[in-house]
Design a protein around this nucleic acid. Structure first.
Length: 553
RNA sequence: UGGCCUAUAGUAUAAUGGUAGUACGACAGAUUUUGGUUCUGUUUGUCUUGGUUCGAAUCCAGGUAGGCCAACCA
């Protein structure tokens, strides 16, 4: 018996539509404009649309909303497709709004013939002025009185390239007094002598989003057209077009877009961060883009889980980043290979371990995975431990290394701290310890139990690596709602590059591996790595109860 | 001051007129060869005022608060 999970409001609508027979099956779509990279907010929409298709045995199309040639590019098309596939979804069809340009042109002609559209010669300023305001109705101009024949000819001339950009537009003739501004004779076609990434120079007039989007849904027979809240006032216009054109009645449903704290979620702002070099690119690991999260080490599973957990509703939200972090930790804990890396080394000499001797110890790759296997770790007289893991005068409840105290070296031996070596300035240069030979991991007969276990690396075989540690990109929860320029709130310390000393097995790391550096966090290899230098991105730290304890004082 | 959308713990999200629940976070404890994981427990909530009803988070009305709409962008 599986537990019944409650439905979100869109699922309720779909189940009702299926039950009543309004639809036999469902068809959804994800409709990005190829003018930027996808971000985690799009991931929510992708998971919703494709997830619905899967859940209800329907299908989902990918349709590029490419009606504005000046901002769109195939680079974006490619990245969008890659991101959706990486998230684990397959589209039934790959479509483009530009596939429908001829049909959309026909729709416009039909409106003209019905006396429901006219060519307007006004400037954009004049049109804006005539539109009125939300509290004052708009007014029609003399162009709205043109005859059907005249409009037909003028529109054909627009298509034929007889006019320059901005000289004329085609407007739907609806209601200049509507309280809904979108119904005040909206522009449905404009002239743009621009090269389109797919149709080339075939067209010099392009449909507006409002005239392309709803009809594209209709052409594809999308049953449930899901979009974000800001498109609610557009819906009456889509429905007007569907009714006047007598085409398939797709129905639009709107949900609240995802907002994440300490970042921004608009393509315009993300583009600015890229263009002004505040980040290294769209896939900078600090970016909330899907490509950035991927490079950072997030997994598709964790992002899908996140999308599931944030839910779908109609109220504005600001999700805490800690939920995303929880999701990725939960997945990575199950799959990441454990490795030991010391970041801030201090030398530890095991005085009773024979000089020149090295032994190989075994350590599990992942304690959460019984089939994960083991790896070998060299161990000898001189090792490095984390400087943080030693204190000369430890506070209470500190169960790491301190003079006279014992700890276990992970997968190795229990050691006892005998002596602290210092230079003339009083800085600690090394720690002398003795080890307990009977305490070897896996065959411990010493009977000693210790509270602390430390990670370590063998000094002579340690591999030096570069590690990039990331912090939140912005210093405030919601940069978009702050006074002034959102870029004033960028966190200057969002990237810290440090050195690490890793166990030798790290040298076989590949781009698809996921690691947990013991007691530190989750990491993955970065594509900037070279044959000489391995570079790792810190995906997320481990939870750190001791750091909290210290903070409390 | 026109229209539309929304309002449940710190953050999200359920409860579909009948015991306000879940997750994340926070806090406390147990376990632990990762101060990780796992497990247990605690904490905090129906925007407001009326109305309908045996009974309202839910339905109705008025308020309040937040969001969206006046691009030849999507």
């Amino acid at each position: 018996m599986s537990e019944e999970k409650s439905l979100n409001f869109i699922e309720e609508i779909i189940e009702e539509d299926l039950k009543t027979g309004k639809h036999q099956s469902i068809l959804t779509r994800f409709p990005p404009e190829p003018n930027g990279y996808l971000h985690i907010g799009h991931a929510k929409s992708i998971c919703l649309n494709f997830g619905l298709g899967i859940k209800y045995n329907g299908k989902t199309n990918l349709r590029f909303d490419d009606t504005n040639p000046v901002t769109e590019d195939t680079e974006y098309v490619d990245s969008i497709k890659e991101d959706i596939q990486w998230l684990g979804f397959n589209w039934a069809n790959e479509f483009y709004a530009s596939d429908y340009f001829e049909q959309l042109y026909g729709f416009a002609v039909k409106l003209i013939e019905k006396g429901l559209a006219y060519v307007d010669d006004s400037t954009s300023e004049e049109i804006a002025k005539q539109k009125g305001t939300p509290t004052q109705p708009g007014t029609r101009n003399q162009y709205s009185e043109r005859t059907v024949e005249e409009n037909l000819q003028l529109f054909a001339d627009m298509r034929a390239g007889k006019y320059k950009d901005g000289e004329k537009v085609l407007r739907a003739k609806i209601d200049m007094t509507s309280p809904n501004m979108h119904m005040r004779d909206p522009i449905i076609y404009r002239i743009k002598h621009a090269h389109h990434h797919r149709t080339g120079d075939k067209w010099c007039i392009y449909p507006m989003y409002d005239f392309a989007h709803g009809q594209s849904d209709s052409i594809e027979k999308i049953t449930h057209s899901i979009c974000t809240l800001e498109f609610i006032p557009h819906r009456p216009l889509y429905e007007w077009c569907i009714e006047q054109l007598e085409i398939f009645p797709s129905r639009q449903y709107e949900f609240a877009r995802l907002n994440l704290n300490y970042t921004v979620m608009s393509k315009r702002k993300l583009l600015q961060l890229v263009n002004e070099k505040h980040v290294s690119g769209w896939d900078d690991p600090r970016m909330p883009t899907i490509s950035g999260l991927r490079r950072r080490g997030y997994t598709p599973e964790s992002i899908r889980d996140f999308a599931e957990r944030v839910g779908v509703a109609k109220r504005d939200n600001l999700i805490e980043f800690s939920l995303l972090e929880f999701c990725v930790r939960e997945h990575l804990n199950k799959v990441a290979l454990r490795r030991m890396v010391v970041f801030n080394p201090i030398k530890l000499i095991i005085t009773n371990y024979p000089e020149g001797q090295t032994e190989l110890l075994n350590s599990e790759n992942n304690p959460e995975d019984v089939n994960g296997g083991t790896r070998e770790l060299p161990f000898s007289r001189e090792i490095f431990i984390e400087a943080d893991d030693f204190m000369e005068n430890p506070p209470k409840k500190y169960f790491r290394l301190a003079p006279g105290q014992m700890v276990r070296l992970k997968s190795a031996y229990i050691i006892k701290c005998d002596e602290v070596l210092k230079d003339d300035a009083g800085n600690i240069t090394a720690i002398h310890c003795s080890y307990i030979p009977e305490s070897k991991s896996g065959s411990d007969t010493s009977g000693i139990s210790v509270k602390g276990t430390l990670h370590w690396v063998n000094a002579s075989t340690a591999v030096e690596v570069e590690v990039r540690e990331y912090d939140r990109l912005f210093q405030v929860e919601n940069p978009a709602s702050e006074e002034g320029d959102f870029k004033d709130y960028i966190n200057p310390n969002s990237l810290t590059v440090v050195k690490g000393y890793a166990e030798p097995s790290i040298s076989t790391a590949t781009l698809t591996d996921r690691f947990q550096f013991l007691r530190k966090g989750y990491y993955c290899l970065d594509k900037d790595s070279t044959a000489d230098t391995l570079i790792f991105n810190r995906t997320v730290t481990l939870k750190d109860a001791w750091a909290k304890e210290v903070k409390k004082g």
